[in-house]
Each structure stands twice: as C-alpha cells, then as structure tokens.
Design a protein around this nucleic acid. Structure first.
Lengths: 346, 346
DNA sequence: CCCCTTTTGCTCGAATTGAGTATAAGTGGC
DNA sequence: GCCACTTATACTCAATTCGAGCAAAAGGGG
C-alpha cells in the first residue's frame, strides 16, 4: 500500500467557489464583480457546502442565481487554488479561522446578456480595467513599453543570482513575446504572475503586508499601473479565466455562449475581438465563420447598422461538438479514416 | 454583500491528491499504478495535509517521491473532482468517515524514464490496457464497431424520453466522430463518460452497488470490453489526463518532458504517436519538427536502429515557451506587430 | 557483396491563409 | 429626391502550409 489517510486534528480545509462570470456588451468584455464592505471588489464567491451541493458546478450555478437572479449558461471549471501565502487574505475574506486552509475552486461562466445587477450589490466591469495591457485592439498599449517592461526589467536586475536573472529574462521574453513569436494573447496568466512577483500588482504589497513580510526592494509600483485591484487572489483567477477563454475560443465554439441567439457576423467578430484583445481582418473572419459550418443564416436582417443591413445568423448547435476547421494540427496525421467510424447511428 | 461563510457543523471536506504519472517506453505510453489490498489497482494518491504542504503541486511531488523514489518532471493540475455519487467508494478508499466529502485534485506528471517500481508496490501499465479503444495506431480497433457502439446504441435506445434519446445520439456522434469530423483523439474523457453512463465501464456497476442502487437495465457489460478497472474514480482521472495530454501536445512542447535528453526524430515521433494513439506521416512529422525550432542536432548519431544511423537531437529549451509554428489560428489576426513589443530585454 | 531496413531529403499539387480591392444596400443631410 | 457616408458582402491573388508520395543515403547481416 502506498498510503493511508492519517486523520486526526489537522487544520480544517474550507472550500470556496469563485466564479468569473463573463458577458460581452458590444465590444466590451464584462466580468461580474461584487462590492465588499471595507475592501476591494471581489468576484462572486461562496462557500461550498458539501451537504447542499452534489457537484461544484451546481454549487456555482446555485449561489450565483440565488444572489443575482442570473442563470448561468456555459460553466467550466478553471483551476483549484490552494497555495499558502495567498491564503491569509482569503481566510479573512471567508470568515474562517486563521489556521484554516482555504482552497478556492475557480469557475468560468458565460452569460448572453449583461443584465443590471445593481440591486444585488453586483456590477459588470470591463475586464481590461483590471488588465489594461491586455487590450491591443487599438494597437500596442503604450504602458507596456513605457512602464511595464521597465518595471519588469528592474525586477530582473534585482535578482539574487545570475541564474535567477537569466530565468527572469526568459520568462519576461516568453510572456510578452519579445523577440520570438510576438504577442500571445492567451498568456494573460503568465503576464499577471510576472507582474505579481515583480511587485507591480497592487495585491503583491498587500499580501506581503498581511503575511508580515517587509515591502519588496525597489520603488513601489505606481498606482494604477498594474490595473484595478480585486480581493484575495481574484485577479489571478480572472487572469486564468481570460487565458482559458482566449485559448479555447480558437478551437471550440464557446463564443456563441456569450452572444445573443441571433447575431450579425460583425457582432460575432466584435465578441471575439473583445475576448482576444486584438483586431481581426474582417473579410477573412467572415470567410472563416461561413466556412466553419457553425453559423446559419436566418434570412432576416438587421437594419440599424449605420450602413447596409446585416444578415442575422444563429449558432448551428448541432455542430456544437465540432471544431472550427482550422484546428491546426501540428501533428500531421496519416490518412487512416476517409470514412469515419464505419458504423452510423441510425 | 453577496455571501458569508456560515460555518458550523457541516460534514468535513477531505482533500485527496491523485497523480497520473506518465512515462513513455519506446512505443508504449505507461501510467503508474499502485496495488491495493483487496481492491483494484489505483493511481498513486495521498491525502493533502494543509499543515505540511504549501501548495498542492509540492504535495504531489512529495508523496510520489517519498513513496517511490521517483522525482517528477513536468507537473500540472488536471481537474478537481467533487461529485457526490462517485464519492462512496472514494470515502472508503481514503479511510474517511462515510459522511465526509472527499474532493480529489488530479494531477498530471511526466517522467523521462520508466524506472522499476516493484519495490514500492507500484507498477507501470500501458494506458491502453485501461482504454483499448483509444489506440488507433494500427487502424481502428475492431471493438469499437463490434462492441462499443452497439452497447452505446442499446443505451441510447433505453432512454426515458425521445429528447433524452436524441441527446444521447448526439453525444455518441460527437464523442466518436461518427459522421462529421472523424475521430478526435483528445475526446478520451467524453468517450469514457459515455461508457460509464451507459454502464459499459466496470466501475459503473460497482459504484451503483456501493450506493445501494439497483443494477442498470440492459444486460451487464461483457467483462474486458470496457477496459481494465481502477479504484474509485481513477480511471476517469486517467481519461482526463489523456485528453489533456493529447490536446496539449499539439500546441505546447510538452512531449519533451517525457523523452530522454537525447533522442532521434523517430523516438520523438513514436512518443507523440503513443500519446495521441494514431500513426503519423514520417516525412511530414520530420519536416514539422525541424521547422519548429524546438530541436537541435547534437551532431552525434545512434547506430542501433536496424538501418541507417539516426541523428540525435536535444530539446531546444530556450524555446520552451514557444509554440510549434502550426498553432492553427482559427482567428485571422490583423497585421499589428511585425516588430514585436518594440522594447527588447538586453 | 547484395538484400533489407531505417533515416533523410526532396517534389508536387491541393488547400489554406494573409492582404487588399470592389460592389451592394442601407441612413441622414440638404 | 439626390448625394455623401457608412457598413455589409463578395471577390481576387499571391504566399505559405499541408498531405502524400518517391528516391537516395547509410548502416547491419547472411
């Protein structure tokens, strides 16, 4: 036998569920936040009650719907965060005893419309308010070259050893795509982790203070540079959600869960651009969308476009499991199956 | 305020860590299992002790290394499983009280060599022993058309309503790629979920029995059809790992963490084929590998190939963050950044 | 020394992609 | 009612990538 649970009087484990609820309004990617008394805003979160909820996902749907009246559409688990060190503020947030270990399970959820939430003490916020450097739709944000990279380089130069310095250089290069492949929008999480470690995120100083550690060397981060603050490790969870969504949008038809039932191709493109944070080539996007088989023309049009009326499409949900044709196999398959599977389901 | 933790005398939550430790031996994808007294084999697992471990990942590395002497290379979190219903066998497995809720956090780990583990009560098993239908390297497994699909169709026909039946049809179609895109190797988890729900996996009957439910309608699954059994929900965790690995291998240079330091391109191809479960076109694989910039020629060769000696390569780890060139954007970017970032790190 | 095997290098046409241009069909100003 | 403007939609064309197959190189074994 490899192991047995020891049991006994260990510190309790408390599970907290956090949700990154995303909606898209025109060209704005929105994330739901809740107001906290005496602290920064937070993602909606709630304790996981094992007696109440059969699964985490039901727990997430339940507490979001009960508290905001919002029924979630697409829901997927993101990651489970269990690091000590980010826990001190968390434990307080969740009202647990200091020695309890708070494990937070993060979820990503999409909804089709950004309904008003002010009655529930919640609000929709543009997610680029939290990560201003992630929005390249109007070109490269000036703050990257003017403030972020200098701050990161300074952190690199504070490295304790040559080896650590080289590693920091490599990480910065990869995260920001400095001389190889260029900007990769789905590395949002890597970039945030760097900002946090470098002390450029407001949470970093806060967490160190809460843990009784001294302020980091180097000058303090200019306020506002690192983006708006969120409670606990919620900005990290948001960065995880953005990374996941930006990656997934390319190979799964997930964006339709954040669009209205009927949409124009421009709507669709705006939604993808909002999520990915860069502008797309319109004729090519349209060609790809039509060729994918994921959308079907309703025959209706929408006139209020300011120009020629646009055709309204719907998501071809029978193709829900399908991947857009450009999955991009880096794995050149050998031609095994011209006829797929052989047997058909009646 | 949206919420506060209620606290009180709820059932305890126990966190268990499970690891899918993968190695590749020639053309065999191996996964580490541990023997259990009086039960099927299991993945290596251990309780998460909040007092002992700062992070989950350290916990996983620690308990695997302590128990088998094996130092893990690449480690990544897979998924956190918290469903009740799969919990009854789990709770017993972990020696917890019946009313405790066991939440298991699954990890994927890669090691470069399959060292002997018999002293530790562990063993390496070919993962296709657990999922025979996932290995298409020699063509489509006969069992799919002969046994699996008929079994799934029978389950579809047992649906309680027409709507449920249509949904089951759709799910089977998507999971097995029946008439649209063809077989997608990374849908391992979807296929396993179907098998489980349809009662074709041995765990299904076991879990129902443990939960006091009657045996499902329809005839019992033929033994061996559904693949070898594992304890608790470990086969599901393994399926998750396979799906993740098969998906990730296409856009991250993760396969090198399962190869020896020096390898031939054929070794590399075998490893990818072992993971993905289908054969690759050799000249094209080689072209892709060389063009990717991920490998560099050592100048040495290996003679014992049975033919012309093969050049030995190493992983170009400075390119670790790089993605193989064929990332496959379904998202046609607008030409924003010929020069990337502007600022360079010295 | 010839046969067999495996590695390695190359070719060629089909398909996809990136980028740009032209036309269609509305709205609002005058 | 006509014109300027805006947005949607439809094509074109070259560059690149991808799928598939073929041929030469370089070892080992009888």
């Amino acid at each position: 036998m490899l192991t047995t649970a020891e049991g006994g009087a260990e510190p309790r484990v408390v599970i907290s569920l956090s949700a990154v609820v995303v909606a898209i309004d025109e060209d704005k990617p929105l994330v739901m936040t809740v107001r906290q008394t005496g602290g920064p805003d937070a993602l909606p979160y709630g304790p996981f009650d094992p007696a109440d909820h059969r699964t985490f996902e039901l727990g997430v749907r339940d507490f979001v719907e009960r508290q905001t009246g919002l029924a979630l559409g697409y829901v997927e688990q993101l990651y489970t965060f269990g690091d000590r060190g980010r826990e001190a503020p968390s434990a307080r947030l969740h009202g647990g005893a200091a020695e309890d270990r708070v494990v937070s399970v993060g979820y990503l959820a999409l909804v089709r419309r950004a309904d008003d939430l002010s009655a529930a003490g919640a609000a929709w916020r543009n997610w680029y308010g939290f990560f201003p450097w992630e929005d390249w739709r109007k070109g490269e944000p000036a703050a990257i070259a003017e403030a972020l990279l200098p701050g990161l380089v300074a952190w690199r130069d504070r490295a304790a050893s040559a080896h650590e310095g080289a590693d920091r250089t490599r990480r910065i290069r990869v995260a920001f795509g400095l001389d190889d492949g260029g900007w990769r929008e789905e590395r949002t999480l890597d970039r945030y982790e760097l900002m946090y470690e470098a002390g450029l995120a407001p949470e970093a100083a806060r967490d160190r203070a809460a843990a009784g550690l001294p302020a980091p060397r180097g000058k303090a981060a200019p306020p506002g540079l690192g983006g708006l603050e969120l409670a606990s490790d919620h900005r990290r969870i948001l960065a995880t959600a953005m990374s996941r969504l930006r990656g997934k949008v390319k190979y799964r038809p997930i964006i339709f869960d954040a669009c209205e039932e009927r949409f124009t191709l421009t709507d669709l493109q705006r939604a993808v651009e909002a999520v990915c944070g860069f502008a797309l080539h319109k004729p090519n996007f349209r060609r790809m969308a039509l060729a994918s088989g994921l959308v079907s023309d309703t025959g209706d049009t929408r006139a209020q476009t300011g120009g020629r009326p646009a055709a309204l499409f719907t998501f071809q949900s029978e193709a829900r499991g399908a991947v857009p044709p450009a999955l991009g196999l880096a794995v050149p398959r050998l031609g095994v199956s011209p006829e797929a599977g052989g047997l058909k389901l009646s």
